[in-house]
């Protein structure tokens, strides 16, 4: 049974696309087939982060309108056979997506893949609502910062009211990924703590992604951070998140790149 997951946040620039690519690659590395879908019509970026920008021929709008078949538009990742991308259109806008068309494409994606991961556009309007509409699970991406938390709260409200699952009277399964977290600043009291954000939003924590240069480095290269450098702190945090989404119990830890002398010694031996 396929699972449809939406990666959403309300606010822009908090790491939805990075998270979509990283989770998609991490789940695909486990052997399950994954399709990441860019819902940000007009401002597509998932293709760039995945390094597939020059391979886009058809896009989501073409498939929704019936101008192309799904397998013509889906791009298979060059590094991972199980990872696929359905890009958004760069020239159209979000009004080009019809409710029925999206529903049909989502049904078809469910048949073909084990996981469908929808990268939501920022905002709370039609585009964001369409991206979450068919989801079974939602990942809310939040920065430990007031405006991001406030916007996430709005999005959680929408997840509980505007999705098919909510309309059927079911509970939407929601998880929080806290990105760009700086443990040192949080310890000094100069940043919202994980507990603060969890208490305010009251949804369970899926992962804490530490602030790291590796995220920008991976997107510069067009490679999901979990593939580019699987041992770096954000990649390990995303890999743990992927395992939790698959139902495994993984203890929550704060991955860090700063290594103690003993860690370094151990890493060298293990390598």
């Amino acid at each position: 049974m396929a699972k449809v997951l939406v990666v959403t946040s309300g606010k822009g620039g908090v790491g939805k696309t990075t998270t979509t690519a990283a989770l998609g690659a991490a789940i695909a590395q486990g052997g399950q087939s994954v399709c990441v879908v860019d819902f940000d019509v007009g401002l597509r970026n998932l293709d760039l982060v995945m390094g597939a920008e020059r391979r886009v021929v058809y896009d989501l709008i073409n498939v929704v309108n019936g101008d192309a078949k799904l397998n013509q538009a889906v791009i298979r990742d060059k590094r991972l056979d199980t990872l696929h991308l359905l890009p958004a259109s760069q020239t159209r806008d979000k009004d080009a997506l019809t409710d029925e068309g999206v529903a049909r494409v989502m049904d078809e994606l469910r048949e073909k893949f084990d996981w469908v991961i929808c990268d939501s556009p920022a905002g709370i309007e039609r585009g964001a609502q369409l991206a979450m509409r068919h989801a079974d699970v939602a990942v809310v991406v939040t920065n430990p910062e007031v405006s991001s938390v406030r916007d996430s709260d709005r999005i959680i409200g929408l997840l509980d009211s505007k999705t098919l699952k909510a309309e059927r009277g079911e509970n939407m399964d929601k998880h929080l990924i806290l990105t760009r977290y700086d443990p040192a600043r949080a310890d000094r009291g100069d940043m919202l703590k994980t507990e603060d954000v969890l208490e305010i939003l009251s949804i369970p924590l899926l992962a804490i992604i530490p602030e790291s240069q590796e995220v920008l480095r991976a997107s510069n290269l067009g490679c999901p951070v979990t593939l580019n450098n699987p041992l770096c702190a954000p990649a390990r945090a995303y890999a743990d998140a992927a395992r939790r989404l698959k139902g495994e119990t993984v203890p929550m830890s704060m991955p860090s790149d700063r290594k103690s002398f003993l860690d370094k010694l151990f890493m060298r031996r293990a390598a």
């Binding site: 007031v146 938390v149 406030r150 100069d190 919202l192 603060d196």
Partner: peptide, 11 residues
């Protein structure tokens, strides 16, 4: 600490 101010404002 600014973090706790942020929490109270948000709440």
């Amino acid at each position: 600490a600014s973090g706790s101010v942020a929490r109270e404002r948000l709440q």
